[in-house]
């Protein structure tokens, strides 16, 4: 959307090294530097993170919720992908 506020960016925060980056919200900024600085000021005022990603919202490709059923369907009938599908005789340990 054309706006005097600059393009929209999505912000992802990593709490501690090693943890996943989690989406926390979005913001407007005119360029990358401003986006990352705004993200720091807006989303990590209380040391919520140790690393940040900002991504132009326009670059994100999202699955569509209406098609979620058929889109994710292939994994629904594959119970054999879970460990509980397999029977291990009693007494066998560490498996």
């Amino acid at each position: 959307m054309k706006d005097s506020q600059g393009p929209l960016w999505e912000v992802f925060v990593q709490k501690k090294a090693g943890q996943p980056f989690v989406h926390c919200g979005s913001l407007h900024a005119y360029d990358k530097e401003m986006a990352i600085e705004n993200a720091r000021d807006l989303y990590t005022r209380r040391s919520e993170g140790s690393a940040l990603w900002v991504v132009p919202a326009a670059a994100i490709v999202a699955s569509s919720p209406e098609d979620a059923g058929s889109f994710f369907e292939p994994s629904n009938d594959k119970v054999y992908r879970h460990p509980t599908f397999y029977q291990i005789p009693e007494g066998v340990k560490y498996i």
Binding site: M1, D3, S4, Q5, L8, G25, S26, L27, H28, D41, L42, R45
Partner: peptide, 23 residues
């Protein structure tokens, strides 16, 4: 007061996800 400014920004972007523009 800075927090309140931040709250405004969180909410504006939430409203924008519904198709409204900031301007």
């Amino acid at each position: 007061v800075q927090d309140e400014g931040g709250h405004g920004l969180y909410l504006y972007t939430a409203a924008e996800t519904l198709g409204a523009s900031r301007d």
